[in-house]
Each structure stands twice: as structure tokens, then as C-alpha cells.
Lab assay of single mutants.
Amino acid sequence: KQVQVGDEKYTFDTPEEARKFAEKVAKEKNLKVTEKNGNFHVE
């Protein structure tokens, strides 16, 4: 599963790991997490 933050992409083995990372980054940057096709976008 992938997490996209701006132009950066991070790959994780499980959706749970990806979601945790996305939520942590979103909180730090005051952004929101959206899920698209099983991948997460922080925007």
C-alpha cells in the first residue's frame, strides 16, 4: 500500500501501517487523509 504526501510516495506492507503513517503525517502537517483505490493520500 502506498501513502502519497505531496510528490513523495511511501510504500508499506499492510494497509494498517500505511494508514497509521498517513494519519501521523496529516496530524503533523495539519492536513487530511483521503483513501483512493486502497492507497492513502495526505493533502
Rank of each mutant, 00 (worst) to 15 (best):
K1R: 14
K1P: 14
K1Y: 15
Q2V: 15
Q2P: 02
Q2S: 13
Q2R: 08
Q2H: 13
Q2W: 15
Q2K: 07
V3I: 03
V3Y: 03
V3Q: 01
V3K: 01
V3D: 01
Q4I: 15
Q4T: 14
Q4M: 15
Q4S: 11
V5K: 02
V5G: 01
V5I: 13
V5D: 04
V5S: 03
V5F: 10
V5C: 14
G6E: 06
G6F: 11
G6Q: 05
G6D: 06
G6N: 07
D7H: 13
D7V: 09
D7G: 12
D7S: 12
D7F: 11
E8H: 13
E8D: 11
E8A: 12
K9N: 09
K9T: 15
K9R: 13
K9S: 12
K9Q: 11
K9G: 05
Y10G: 01
Y10C: 07
Y10W: 11
Y10E: 00
Y10Q: 02
Y10A: 02
Y10M: 04
Y10L: 04
T11M: 12
T11V: 12
T11G: 05
T11P: 03
T11D: 08
F12I: 00
F12R: 00
D13S: 13
D13N: 12
D13V: 07
T14C: 09
T14F: 05
T14P: 01
T14M: 04
T14W: 03
P15K: 13
P15V: 15
P15Q: 13
P15W: 14
P15Y: 15
E16L: 06
E16N: 06
E16Y: 08
E16R: 05
E16H: 06
E16Q: 08
E17V: 03
E17R: 03
E17W: 01
A18P: 00
A18H: 00
A18S: 01
A18V: 00
A18K: 01
R19P: 00
R19G: 01
R19T: 02
R19A: 05
R19Y: 07
K20M: 12
K20V: 10
K20G: 06
F21G: 00
F21Y: 07
F21C: 04
F21H: 01
F21K: 00
F21S: 00
A22D: 00
A22Y: 04
A22I: 03
A22S: 03
A22G: 00
E23L: 09
E23K: 05
E23H: 10
E23V: 07
E23M: 11
E23N: 09
E23R: 05
K24S: 09
K24A: 11
K24Y: 09
K24F: 09
K24Q: 12
V25E: 05
V25C: 13
V25K: 06
V25R: 05
A26W: 04
A26L: 03
A26S: 06
A26R: 01
A26P: 00
A26K: 02
A26N: 03
A26F: 03
K27V: 08
K27R: 12
K27D: 07
K27Q: 11
E28R: 07
E28Y: 07
E28L: 10
E28V: 07
E28H: 07
K29T: 08
N30S: 08
N30K: 08
N30E: 07
N30Q: 08
N30C: 12
N30T: 05
L31S: 08
L31P: 02
L31D: 04
L31H: 06
L31C: 12
K32E: 07
K32M: 11
K32L: 10
K32W: 10
K32P: 06
T34Q: 07
T34G: 05
T34H: 10
E35R: 08
E35Y: 14
E35P: 03
E35V: 15
E35K: 09
E35G: 04
E35M: 15
K36F: 12
K36Q: 09
K36T: 09
K36G: 04
N37W: 06
N37F: 07
N37G: 09
N37T: 04
N37E: 09
N37Q: 06
N37R: 04
G38Y: 03
G38T: 02
G38E: 04
G38L: 03
N39C: 12
N39T: 14
N39I: 15
N39G: 10
H41K: 08
H41I: 15
H41P: 03
V42P: 03
V42Q: 03
V42I: 09
V42R: 02
V42N: 02
V42D: 03
V42K: 03
E43F: 14
E43C: 13
E43Y: 14
E43K: 07
E43S: 12
E43N: 09
E43L: 11
